[in-house]
């Protein structure tokens, strides 16, 4: 995972991304013909870019990942910046190179790139920034959205839905998208205004933001395991005449939710050993069927 990697692993990944970008490049010249900085983009231009960034993965494919959607995001602004046709073509070619960035915090990079395009930086400079930021942005995006914010919102929404309340889906959508759209548009403007200065801020705070998100994420996952993994046994222990229910008489006295926790840790352990989620789903179904048939679940 990107946000848990060491500096050396991150550097190696960045190098590989640069190779992929260059391998898919059809750029012929490194500088723009017209090097006078273009007129600054307006707030409206940046908002338009942020809206379009929703289609980042529209033409997703395994050769260039999000390249097509990435260029789609930038097209209106690029056309405004590059009045010279050859410059526009060159810029478009560069933005069709391999790119794999996080679909949520991508606008930070697109804002930053537009600031560089507007001041007509060299193509290789812009490419270097793109490549350098793919990893850190991916790490932060994964930690914040996939590993923290989605489980929290989904956990709250599912809890309400399971009580039969229509507020489940509504609360889920409102909560999730408040942060989603707030960051998407906020980062677009921040990236454009801060320009290259933003890179250092990002590099310095990548680990800290991921760490903070991981704290919240792990706590919530601990809570979700206790709330929603359901596993108990109907077995009874016979001691002479007395019958003791294993679940309520023994396991719950030891610790409630002992079986759900144990099962989760076993699955976690198997996953670390390389079992795929699909395989584990299959095993769980088999275990459920066998357990019911034999009467121990």
């Amino acid at each position: 995972m990107a946000f848990n990697d060491s500096e050396a692993a991150l550097a190696a990944k960045a190098e590989k991304r640069m190779e992929q970008a260059l391998a898919t490049s059809s750029v012929e010249r490194d500088d723009y013909v017209d090097t006078t900085p273009a007129e600054p983009l307006t707030k409206k231009d940046i908002n338009r870019m942020a809206w379009r960034s929703l289609a980042l993965q529209a033409s997703f494919n395994y050769e260039r990942m999000q390249a097509g959607g990435w260029l789609y995001t930038l097209i209106p602004a690029l056309r405004k910046i590059h009045k010279n046709d050859e410059d526009l073509r060159n810029s478009m070619k560069m933005h069709l190179e391999f790119i794999n960035v996080h679909p949520f915090d991508v606008t930070f990079l697109s804002g930053l790139v537009l600031a560089m395009e507007q001041s007509k930086e060299k193509i290789s400079t812009i490419r270097a920034v793109k490549v350098a930021l793919m990893g850190p942005l991916g790490g932060i995006g994964d930690a914040m959205f996939w590993l923290t914010w989605l489980p929290i919102c989904a956990g709250i929404g599912a809890a309400l839905a399971l009580e039969g309340s229509m507020f489940g889906p509504i609360v889920f959508l409102l909560l999730f998208n408040a942060l989603h759209f707030g960051l998407r548009f906020g980062l677009a403007h921040y990236g454009y205004r801060a320009g290259l200065g933003a890179i250092n801020v990002l590099k310095n705070s990548t680990k800290k933001i991921s760490h903070a998100a991981s704290i919240v994420g792990m706590t919530v996952i601990g809570a979700l395991v206790a709330s929603y993994v359901r596993l108990s046994t109907p077995l009874e222990i016979h001691a002479g005449e007395a019958k003791i229910a294993l679940q309520s008489g023994v396991l719950d006295k030891l610790m409630p939710n002992l079986l759900p926790l144990g099962f989760t840790l076993v699955v976690y352990w198997l996953m670390k050993k390389g079992y795929s989620p699909v395989k584990l789903i299959g095993l769980t179904v088999v275990l459920g069927l066998v357990g019911k048939f034999m009467g121990f679940l």
Partner: peptide, 11 residues
Amino acid sequence: AIGFALLMKIM
């Protein structure tokens, strides 16, 4: 448990 374990494996 599988979904949660998947998240744990990464974090």
